[in-house]
Amino acid sequence: MSNTNNEVLFGLYNDEVELMSAVKEAKDQHLDIMDVYTPFPVHGLDPILGLSESRLHIAGFIYGMIGTTIAFGFMTWVFTRDWPIIFGGKPYFSVPSFIPITFELTVLFACIGMVVTFYTICGMGPGVNNEVLDERITDDKFCIAFATDGMGDDEIEKLKGFFQSTGADEVNSKSLN
C-alpha cells in the first residue's frame, strides 16, 4: 500500500450544514465517499454517512472486568493463601475492605484499555504521520474526500460537478503516499 499513490479529490465547505446536505446528496447519487473531515464532531453526520455505532464501550466493559478480576482475585489470594494476617480481628477474606481497591482498578483498567484501543484502531500515536489533506480542516473547513485512483476523466468531472452543485468553496486534489 505504501508504494502506490492514492489520488484523492476533495472539496472544502464552509459550514457543517452545507457539508451535511452535500453528504446526503452524495449518498443519493451513490458516490463512494472515502472520508469526511471536520474541525469538530458534527452531530447527525454518522447516520447519513452510514457509520455504525462505535463499539468502544464494549471493549471498555471487558477491560473493566479484567481489572475487577485481577484486583479482587489478587487481594483474595494474598490474604487467604499467600500470607494470611489478621487485621483488627477481621476475617482473612474481608470482602467490604476489598471493594475500594477493586473499584479503583476496574476504572483504571477500563480507562487505560479504552484509550490505548482508541489510538490503536484510529491508527494514531506519538510520532504518527497521517497526511493532512488541507491544513484548514482543523480550523474552519469541512471536507468530503473521494478516492480517485484509476478513475477516468469523465468520472472525475462528475465528482467536480457534484462539488460545484453542492456549494463547495474549493475543490482540490492531492496524492497521498
Binding site: 472520508d35 458534527v42 454517512l49 457509520l51 468502544l56 471498555g60 482508541f118 484510529c122 500515536g125
Partner: peptide, 28 residues
C-alpha cells in the same frame, strides 16, 4: 505533530473520540 498523534479529523475518529469521551466521563 508528535503531540497531536497524527489526528486528521476523520468522521469515524470523531465518532470514536466522542464515544471515548462519554465513557471516560461516565467512569470518571
Amino acid at each position: 505533530n508528535i503531540l497531536s498523534f497524527g489526528w486528521t479529523g476523520s468522521a469515524k475518529h470523531w465518532q470514536r473520540w466522542e464515544s471515548l469521551s462519554l465513557i471516560l466521563a461516565g467512569l470518571a
